[in-house]
Amino acid sequence: MQILGRGPGRSRNLTAEEAEAAMGLILDGRADPHAIGALLMLMRYRGESPEEIAGFTRALRASLPPMPPADLDWPSYAAGRSRGLPWFLLAARLVARSGARVLIHGWAPPQPEGPELREALALAGIGLAADPDEAGRLLDRDGIAFLPLDGFAPQALGLLRLREVLGLRSCINTVCRMLNPAGAAAAVQGVFHPPYMALQQAAGALLGQRRLGILKGGGGEFERNPSKAVTLWRLIGGQPERTELAPLLPEPQRLADGLRSPQALAALWDGRIDDAFARAIVIATAEAALLTLGSPARAEALWEERGRSLAA
């Protein structure tokens, strides 16, 4: 607090070591709740740095229980207020069919619009794990699992939910996206505000992330709009790169303008409906994830070869 709040000309951002120490005090229960809120809001006001995000993330990682191995980390922490159906879930499942173990982790509060998370996961054919052990069993069986934040990092969830008290998001949203609890070599991340792409790319490099793909996605999720050009901010071998992805469809559309019934998630997968825009969202998002993985698999081929049942 003294470092961040000294006033004009004297305050500065935290170093990675200072941020790690601060988060350690919070996790150990030695930080006053008022100071925690003030710290997070000062960081929001100043604008968090890659070093601060990396330091917070390191401290949180050190508090996590043992996790099952995964090839691709897929965080899902967007509020979802400006998006349509979570087609990215089908994209993640498609990537799992390439042979990659995909761990989705996140937290989604109840939404007045759109399906509840549990309903969407079931319709997308993705198992919901209660804890890391169950996530491991689902990954062994299906190649994909969703592990909620409270199932492996309840203290991080408590910090995330301070938004309900403070009325504003904090850097904890970004830290959770960077968490990569299973230590996967590749990770994808979505953002809502474009400046966070550079922030998360730089923080990922500080954390030693070898492969990373970040894009501005639907509602802040890693979900690509196939009717628009997209920049994929990447780490390849830990080095920053940018890849321009051209539109796949001729006419621009909004993600929120498509199908609205949650049942469409299952219906699209098993072929009971064939909506060109929804299908393109799934394929384009999966293709960006496969690119991040460095996988030779092609999303369109995986889609054509998928089983005609969510149980397949």
Rank of each mutant, 00 (worst) to 15 (best):
residue 128 L to Q: 09
residue 46 R to K: 15
residue 219 G to I: 03
residue 299 A to P: 03
residue 35 A to W: 15
residue 189 Q to C: 11
residue 163 R to V: 07
residue 244 E to W: 02
residue 307 G to F: 08
residue 56 F to P: 14
residue 252 P to H: 08
residue 160 L to I: 05
residue 187 A to G: 00
residue 125 G to E: 12
residue 158 G to H: 04
residue 234 R to K: 02
residue 47 G to Y: 13
residue 257 D to P: 01
residue 245 L to A: 05
residue 271 G to E: 05
residue 221 E to R: 03
residue 255 L to Y: 13
residue 238 G to I: 09
residue 265 L to D: 02
residue 295 S to H: 12
residue 175 V to E: 00
residue 271 G to F: 11
residue 281 I to P: 11
residue 183 G to H: 04
residue 211 R to V: 09
residue 5 G to A: 13
residue 19 A to H: 00
residue 177 R to Q: 15
residue 256 A to K: 13
residue 24 G to K: 13
residue 97 R to V: 09
residue 147 L to N: 00
residue 119 E to H: 10
residue 6 R to A: 14
residue 18 E to G: 15
residue 269 W to K: 01
residue 295 S to I: 14
residue 153 A to I: 07
residue 67 M to D: 04
residue 7 G to L: 14
residue 222 F to T: 03
residue 141 R to W: 09
residue 307 G to Q: 07
residue 220 G to I: 14
residue 155 Q to K: 06
residue 99 G to F: 03
residue 166 L to K: 03
residue 154 P to L: 10
residue 103 L to M: 09
residue 212 L to A: 00
residue 103 L to I: 03
residue 142 D to K: 11
residue 297 A to W: 12
residue 197 M to L: 11
residue 51 E to I: 06
residue 143 G to E: 08
residue 86 P to M: 02
residue 194 P to N: 09
residue 244 E to H: 12
residue 44 R to D: 15
residue 204 G to H: 06
residue 111 Q to M: 09
residue 175 V to C: 00
residue 238 G to Y: 06
residue 265 L to P: 13
residue 97 R to G: 06
residue 45 Y to M: 15
residue 87 W to F: 06
residue 179 L to F: 04
residue 168 L to W: 15
residue 222 F to C: 03
residue 205 A to L: 05
residue 144 I to L: 09
residue 50 P to R: 02
residue 276 A to H: 13
residue 304 E to R: 14
residue 227 S to I: 12
residue 235 L to I: 06
residue 87 W to V: 02
residue 77 Y to S: 01
residue 199 L to K: 11
residue 89 L to Q: 07
residue 37 G to M: 06
residue 79 A to I: 02
residue 127 G to E: 11
residue 43 M to Q: 15
residue 249 L to F: 03
residue 312 A to V: 02
residue 232 L to Y: 12
residue 84 G to A: 02
residue 152 F to I: 08
residue 137 R to N: 01
residue 155 Q to C: 11
residue 191 V to S: 11
residue 108 A to Q: 04
residue 190 G to R: 11
residue 161 R to I: 15
residue 7 G to M: 04
residue 65 P to I: 05
residue 27 L to V: 10
residue 104 I to G: 11
residue 207 L to F: 08
residue 27 L to S: 01
residue 80 G to Q: 09
